[in-house]
Design a protein around this nucleic acid. Sequence first.
DNA 1: TTATTTGCAAAGAATTTGCAGCAGT
DNA 2: ACTGCTGCAAATTCTTTGCAAATAA
Lengths: 136, 136
Amino acid sequence: MEIAEVLRKNGYKVTPQRLAVYEAINHNPTHPNAEAIYKILQPNYPSMSLATVYKTMEIFAKIGVVQVLQCAEDAHRYDYNTTPHAHIRCEKCNRVIDIDMDQEGLRQQAAEQSGFVVNGVSISFVGICPECREKS
Amino acid sequence: MEIAEVLRKNGYKVTPQRLAVYEAINHNPTHPNAEAIYKILQPNYPSMSLATVYKTMEIFAKIGVVQVLQCAEDAHRYDYNTTPHAHIRCEKCNRVIDIDMDQEGLRQQAAEQSGFVVNGVSISFVGICPECREKS
DNA sequence: TTATTTGCAAAGAATTTGCAGCAGT
DNA sequence: ACTGCTGCAAATTCTTTGCAAATAA
């Protein structure tokens, strides 16, 4: 389904800014934060504001177009891959990559132990990536 | 081992403020954030500043006296229980409770898939606690 | 037309820092 | 005495918000 269609279906208008933000993050494996998305857009959309990026990402997160990562040490990062998976961040270079991991079992375990209704899971690792390890 | 001893062993001085902060968090199951710790201390230590709480917690985290949780939506929260375990936060009342969970297998899985050296794991869930569920 | 959205600038929340005086070792 | 610590206020960082002008439906 096209992003324009998804926006319309959810009652949001289709604007050049939203399409541009979507282009910047779709299949972007670097898990950018708002600032990074803003910088990607600067050359082609110099009038786009950081506030618009934040507002757009909030909408995208709400309608399930992106996933918000809590693993970053600093700011939120966004992932166009919305299937359940974990992340690992390199403590040296801060890159974030995806880890495939079944979360169903963990979810059940959490529900049983706590008595909570579990609505979300976030699994994140930190470590040193192969490239940074080589350098030192 | 006494907190005073741990501080000294790590080259930090033992001060009334640090002891007070330790008292406030030790066996405190509420996973307080810096602001909450500050408020706990106010009645007995009115001169203690929020900045000191932050500085102290940073040291405590570094020397392994507490664990920093990334699961809170807003601010960092601290846990005196430094053994590996997960957390679940209630989306309504924001309470955070512990979940026992073996993380060794997940760690290995992450290491294998990514090639990273894994230094840390953080597993957090969100959901609705039994009390809040009852209310609605 | 009309409700949304944009972009600016300003506010806000959480956290960190500089520094002068104070205190543990 | 020496070095590190405290507490204040100010700075920083990330994010949100109010509002007038612009724009999609």
